[in-house]
């Protein structure tokens, strides 16, 4: 089995190709509704990559919140503002050229950086297969409330204490979401059409 296909890699290639392909489609598509669709596909494929990295919980989160919530929101926006002339808007060719050159350069740079760093190399197949599958939700749940399961073996007592939990950020995010919720409700509130302020001209 030593040189058989390593399936996670196969699926990594599949999902990354989908994610990148649809991301490019978002860039190159001119129709805003199709862009939204490609974005959904790209985000869903990224969720697949999360699953492959062993983070089911975040993957499911991505599907639920990102793909489900955010994109529905976006599509609402698209539909509310979709008139013929906005569905397709052209960008001047000059901008395209500059953008693409810069983009390619940036990608090249980032790839160089990623692949040149020895610590970021893959581990061997034997090592990868030895990694035990663990529940993902429980440690995250624990980390959000009480403490860090993965830091229990931390020899440094002070460090361990400092990394005890994410309770505060969690609360901040909750309050933040509440604020956004209220803001959204405020935005979408209905008001009666006020009687016109008719003054004699």
């Amino acid at each position: 089995m030593g040189d058989g296909i390593y399936w996670p890699t196969f699926f990594f290639l599949l999902f990354s190709a989908l994610a990148c392909g649809f991301a490019l489609a978002v860039v190159f598509s001119r129709n805003v509704v199709r862009m939204a669709f490609y974005l959904v596909m790209s985000l869903a494929s990224t969720a697949g990559l999360f699953f492959l990295a062993g983070e089911d919980f975040v993957g499911a989160m991505q599907l639920m919140i990102y793909v489900g919530g955010t994109l529905v929101l976006l599509i609402f926006g698209v539909m509310l503002t979709s008139q013929k002339q906005f569905v397709e808007m052209k960008t001047p060719a000059g901008q395209w050229i500059v953008g693409l050159v810069t983009g390619c350069a940036l990608v090249a740079l980032l790839w160089m950086a990623a692949f040149e760093t020895p610590q970021w190399q893959p581990i061997s197949r034997a090592e990868a297969e030895a990694v035990a599958v663990q529940p993902t939700a429980t440690p995250i749940g624990v980390a959000l409330t009480n403490g860090r399961v993965d830091q229990l073996d931390q020899p440094d007592e002070t460090l361990r204490g400092g990394m005890s939990s994410y309770l505060l950020p969690f609360e901040i995010v909750s309050v933040h979401l509440l604020v956004v919720l209220i803001g959204a409700a405020y935005l979408a509130r209905a008001k009666r059409r006020s009687p016109s302020a008719a003054a004699p001209g």
Binding site: A44, D56, F57, G59, A60, M61, L63, M64, V67, G68, V133, P135, T136, A137
Partner: peptide, 15 residues
């Protein structure tokens, strides 16, 4: 066997 099964099913159904 997904260890966040409930969540996964709800998320996917939402799609």
């Amino acid at each position: 066997h997904v260890n966040t099964g409930v969540f996964f099913v709800l998320a996917v159904l939402g799609l």
